[in-house]
Structures are given as C-alpha cells and as structure tokens.
C-alpha cells in the first residue's frame, strides 16, 4: 500500500506514534521502560471500559453511566471478596449483566435516547455505590494479590487480559452476525429495522457487553490497588469517551473497531503521562480531555459533512 493511503487508513495508529515520539522528545524519561510499563498498567483497567463503551457507540448509543457503574462494581467486588474471592469475581459480573440489561431495556422498550437514560442511571448507581459502602474498603490479601502480581515477560497478567479482551471484541464486531448488525444499526437504524435485524436485542446485548467490561475493569482495578472507593469511577465516563473518540469511533455510530479504541486509549494515556512527567498539574488533565473530545468530534463531523454535501443521486 502506498504511504499516503496507509496513513489515511491507519490515521489513529500514525497519530499515536507521532504523539509518542513528541512526548519522548520533550521528556527524556519517556523512553524509560518503567514509564512504558506504567502506561500499559494504567491503560489496562480503564481501557477495558473504553472498549466496552466503543461497542455501544458503534451501535449508535452512548453509556454515560460507566463511571458510576465502575464505582459500584469496585465496592461490590471488594465487599464480596471479604466473604470469598470467587464471589468477588462472580457477583460484579452478574450484577453487570443486570445493569446493562436495564440500560438496554430502558432504551429499547421506551425508545429513549441512551444519553439521557444513562445520565439518569449514572446518578442512580453513583448514589447506590455510596449507600452500599460509604467509605473505602480494603481487600484481604491472597488470591487477588497473586493475580495482580503475576507477570509474564515483565508485563503484568492483567495487561494481557486487556489485550485479550480487545481481540475478542474485535472478532465479535467483525465476524459475527451480531457485530455486523450492530454496524448496520449504528449507521442507518431504519434500514436495519426493515431488514428484520432485531435492533432491540443488539442494543441490549451491546449494553450488557459494555457493563461486563466495566465490571472486569473494576475487578482488575481493585486487585491491582487492593481497595475499592465508592467514588473511584467519577470522571471515568469522560476519559473513556475521550479514548473512544480518539480511537476513531464515530459518535454517530457505524464506524470504528475495538483495536482502534485500544489505540485511542494508548494515545490518551501517553498524552496524560507526558503531562505528568512534564510536571503539569493534575487539574489540567480535565481541560486536555475536554479539548481532545472537541477536536475528535469536529474531525469526525467534518468527515461526515463532506459526504453529505453532495446528495449524489446519480453517482454511478
């Protein structure tokens, strides 16, 4: 493939490399093995949430409640772990299925806008997390510590979990009937409806997948850190969405991929790490994220508009 074509089709990857190089140039510590490792570690937990979210966005919806659900899953997982390690694994996931199904049900049964609905559920789960566990809780050692400490080739196991999850979702999106239907649905809901695609089932399934990813992320986080906060997920929806958009998923749906989102997540984390190493105050991160979202949205809109400007009824 010619270079220009390559750049066009793999824009995100190219940008990631460029951003990485810029950071490395500005901050020499960047090329340090420890820095890269740190990036990977952080990316693993928040990244899983992002790829789950991207599945929802591809289907044409949005899930703003991921942050609150994350908080809830953290405290649930920790509390359950105090009873039994296995419960700490199973209960959040089962709960996640319920949460996702609820989101999906509300959106499909009442034909509501997923953004507003999840704005509501975000509040509900945030409050629930606080009620369930008003303070931070710690995890007893053993089982989870072992997992979080185990590493392969110097990279912790949970990072591999993240990449594995990304690959699984990528396959699901591109090779299965469900995945392809999701793309149709995102781009042209009416046509998908008429084609007999069960939009409701796809939407609910996409939301369940997203919530399960959030739960897995929460479990990984609590094992890594050893404790759970009831407000650990605050702002996560914001970061996750930034990563998803940076990864080239269109907010309108129908475009994107799990692997691209991984790139988006890496890109975001590289930028944030770069900022930290440059001693930029933590508070600036929010500003940067907001700006990145706006940039990504504008670029995406620009592409969509170029297509719409010419109705092209006769294009052959």
């Amino acid at each position: 493939m010619r270079p220009l074509q390559f750049i066009r089709s793999q824009t995100q990857l190219v940008i990631l490399v460029v951003v990485f190089l810029i950071c490395a140039a500005v901050v020499p510590e960047f090329l340090n093995e420890r820095t890269v490792l740190n990036i990977l570690k952080t990316v693993a937990t928040s990244g899983i949430v992002a790829i789950g979210l991207s599945v929802v966005v591809i289907g044409g919806n949005l899930d703003l409640s991921v942050g609150s659900v994350f908080s809830l899953m953290c405290v649930v997982s920790v509390k359950m772990q105090n009873t039994s390690p296995w419960l700490g694994l199973i209960v959040p996931i089962v709960l996640a299925v319920g949460v996702g199904a609820l989101n999906g049900f509300l959106v499909t049964r009442f034909r509501l806008n997923s953004i507003i609905v999840t704005l509501g559920t975000m509040s509900v789960w945030a409050g629930a997390a606080l009620l369930y566990s008003p303070t931070i809780m710690t995890v007893p050692g053993t089982f989870y510590e072992k997992i979080s400490n185990s590493a392969f080739l110097g990279i912790p196991t949970y990072v591999y979990v993240f990449f594995a999850a990304a690959i699984v979702l990528q396959v699901v999106l591109f090779k299965t009937k469900f995945g392809r239907s999701l793309f149709f649905q995102g781009v042209n809901p009416e046509a998908a409806e008429i084609a007999g695609i069960n939009k409701n089932r796809s939407t609910i399934l996409s939301m369940v997948i997203c919530s399960i990813c959030v739960a897995i992320g929460a479990i990984l986080q609590t094992s890594r850190v050893g404790s759970g906060y009831p407000i650990s997920g605050v702002g996560l929806e914001f970061s996750a969405l930034t990563a998803v958009l940076l990864g080239g998923v269109s907010i309108a749906g129908g475009k994107g991929s799990a692997l691209r989102t991984v790139i988006g997540v890496l890109m975001l984390q590289v930028i944030l790490t770069g900022m930290i190493l440059m001693d930029i105050k933590h508070d600036w991160q929010s500003i940067v994220k907001g700006a990145l979202i706006l940039v990504a949205l504008t670029l995406d809109a620009w592409q969509q508009r170029a297509a719409a400007r010419n109705p092209g009824g006769l294009a052959a």
């Binding site: 969405l241 907010i251 105050k281 994220k289 907001g290 700006a291 706006l294 620009w302 508009r305």
Partner: peptide, 27 residues
C-alpha cells in the same frame, strides 16, 4: 459550525470548563 449534536459537544465543553475551574482553584 461543526454540525455535531449538542450533546457530545457540551459534554466536551463541560469537561473543559470544569477542568479550568479545578486548575484555577487548585481543587
């Protein structure tokens, strides 16, 4: 100007402005 829905855009500006306040007040 961008033609994008107001929902994601104002989500972005919200983060931006909130961030500015946190920076200025140093949380």
């Amino acid at each position: 100007k961008s033609g994008v829905s107001s929902l994601p855009i104002t989500l972005g500006t919200m983060g931006l402005m909130n961030g500015i306040v946190y920076v200025v007040t140093e949380s």
